[in-house]
């Protein structure tokens, strides 16, 4: 031991007097680990493409998504209309591309809002326990007792039919999922010895929650968030179907799929392309989320 300590001391004195505080290029390493995961990169590529569609739809199509062309109804997919046209002669390719903007907006914003609120509620409930836990979780139980769609219907009906109101309705509906997932992982992380060690050094509650507990609960939060981007888009779809989601001419995948359900036997392209768009979005977000979870976990380093 004595020998050992002298050699390490010598070794140390060879280097400079100070060291850098921090991990070894954490961001770089996380990106590196992410890039090694091919499925995740594929997911990310699609997500980036979808974002591009949402931001610059005019770059991909010259058609106007809401302009009707009644002489050209139900045109089959062709080199002119890649995905064909719908019952009003609107170009489906253009509507799918522009619909990306609506769906992404709804999906991402409501996931962000419900994630932040849900994580805070779950973390506080799990960390403090007792009465606080009971109060918060009974409130969450009330939220969970109301079916998501029903809750959405009542909120949109009360506030009026618009995209911001739809986002509010969807966010409130999915808070409960986050709160429960976070609470459970906070409960299990709270018992870890390193949290006790943080208490022993005198760390404050906020520091313990944000530096010790939440970073170690990241995996289920990320999974829940990426999964619910897909579910949220689906719920929005359902509400649009009921006439409570996105107002009529605005292109939205769910609304497109549901409004063309009457023509499904004769004109398959009306439902298929918005459906594939929804599927690809859900799939790519899930791949991306899985890869992100693995990349953020330092223990999985190879």
């Amino acid at each position: 031991m004595f020998m050992l300590s002298t050699t390490t001391k010598q070794e140390a004195s060879l280097t400079q007097d100070t060291i850098s505080i921090g991990g070894h290029g954490q961001a770089k390493e996380i990106i590196g680990r992410f890039l090694r995961n091919k499925a995740a990169v594929f997911g990310l590529a699609i997500v980036v493409f979808l974002l591009f569609c949402a931001i610059f739809p005019q770059a991909l199509t010259q058609y106007d998504p809401i302009e009707q062309d009644l002489r050209n109804r139900f045109a089959a997919p062709s080199s002119e209309h890649y995905f064909g046209t719908d019952e009003y002669g609107r170009d489906i390719f253009a509507r799918v591309i522009y619909g990306c903007r609506t769906s992404m907006e709804i999906g991402l914003i409501s996931v962000a809002v419900s994630c932040i609120i849900g994580v805070i509620i779950g973390a506080v409930a799990g960390f403090y326990g007792g009465i606080t836990d009971n109060l918060f979780m009974r409130f969450i139980d009330i939220l969970m007792a109301i079916p998501n769609t029903l809750l959405g219907i009542s909120i949109v009906a009360a506030l009026g039919n618009s995209i911001p109101n739809l986002i509010i309705a969807l966010s409130i509906g999915s808070i409960a999922g986050y709160a429960r997932v976070v609470r459970v992982s906070v409960l299990s992380t709270k018992g870890m010895e390193y949290v006790e060690a943080a208490y022993a050094t005198g760390a404050s509650d906020a520091r313990i929650i944000f530096k010790y507990i939440l970073p170690n609960c990241l995996a289920p939060i990320i999974v829940q968030a990426t999964m619910s981007v897909a579910t949220t888009i689906m719920t929005a779809t359902g509400l649009s179907f009921l006439g409570l989601g996105v107002p009529a001419p605005t292109p939205e995948w769910g609304a497109m799929a549901s409004s063309s359900r009457a023509y499904i036997r004769d004109y398959w392209w009306l439902v298929t392309f918005p459906g594939i768009a929804i599927m690809i979005t859900a799939f790519s977000f899930n791949l991306f989320g899985d890869g992100l979870r693995d990349a953020l976990d330092p223990k999985l380093k190879s």
């Binding site: 850098s20 921090g22 954490q26």
Partner: peptide
């Protein structure tokens, strides 16, 4: 189990000093 797996060695040692 008594060291936060998300902190590096230097961050772990710096933690009490920061607190």
């Amino acid at each position: 189990s008594s060291l936060n797996p998300r902190m590096s060695v230097s961050q772990l040692i710096a933690e009490p000093l920061l607190i």
